[in-house]
Structure formats: structure tokens, C-alpha cells
Amino acid sequence: MIYISIIIGCILGAIIGMNTPVISYTYSSYLAIAIIAALDTVFGGITSVIKKNFDLKIFLSGFFGNAILSIALTYLGERLNVDIYLAAVVVFVGRMFTNLAIIRRHYVDKWTNKFAEMSHKNKKEVKE
């Protein structure tokens, strides 16, 4: 259910994104960092769904809060001539990997259990 909606959202987004006007290059670095932040939030959301502790408020505030904060940090870094956005990228991508690991483990466990059950059943059947 969740994955279907995600795929539909991605397809729709791709179709609309391809037809929207291009933004100015000056602001593309801000958009990039916002995308990274949003991506992180989405993975976090999936993880929380798996863990069954999904909170709508936290998810929404994380989505917009992270994006806005990272944009602000990028802007500040540009003013200060420090690449602060690199830190944001590192944090977000690191969290993304953590979340991905949780998701991966969850499904790997699920499937190994399934396979184990299946093989157990098969063995039983063979024995019988």
C-alpha cells in the first residue's frame, strides 16, 4: 500500500517535473539541498512506518523544517564563504544510509523467516 502510493507519487512528480519551467541556476544549489533533506525525511518516514512509530506531526515538520533549515544553512555558508551545505549533505546522506539499513534489515529478516519457514515446511513434507 505504502510503496504503491510512493511509486504513483514518483511517477506523477516526474511527469509534472518534466513540464515545469526551469529555475535560475543561482538557486539550484538551494533546491538541491532541499531535495536531499526531503529525501532523508521520506526514508525516515518509511523507517518509522516499519517500526510502527510513525507520527504525522513529526514527519511533516521534519520534511519542511529540514528543507528550510538546510536552505538557510546553505545561504549562510555562501555568505560566510564556508561550505556548510556539505555538512548538511553528510548528515542527511548518513541518516539516509542508516534508515536504508533499517529498512533492508527488516525486509531481509522478513524474507529469511519466510524462506526458513518454507524450507522447514518442505523438509517436513519430504520427511513425511
Partner: peptide, 30 residues
């Protein structure tokens, strides 16, 4: 609850993909 979450995640992904597409096109167009 699951439906709600699914819809929300779908919307998020929609926004995300729109952003990614715009960014990609900006980068390639420049």
C-alpha cells in the same frame, strides 16, 4: 491510519520527484 500514511508519503514523494526533475533539468539546461 495506513491509508493516511500512504497518501502522505505519496504526496511527499511527488513533491520530491518534482524537485529532483526541476533540479536535473536546470543542471542539464545550464
Amino acid at each position: 491510519q495506513e491509508k493516511k500514511i500512504a497518501a502522505l508519503l505519496g504526496i511527499m514523494c511527488f513533491l520530491l520527484t518534482v524537485g529532483i526533475c526541476i533540479q536535473m533539468r536546470t543542471v542539464t539546461s545550464t
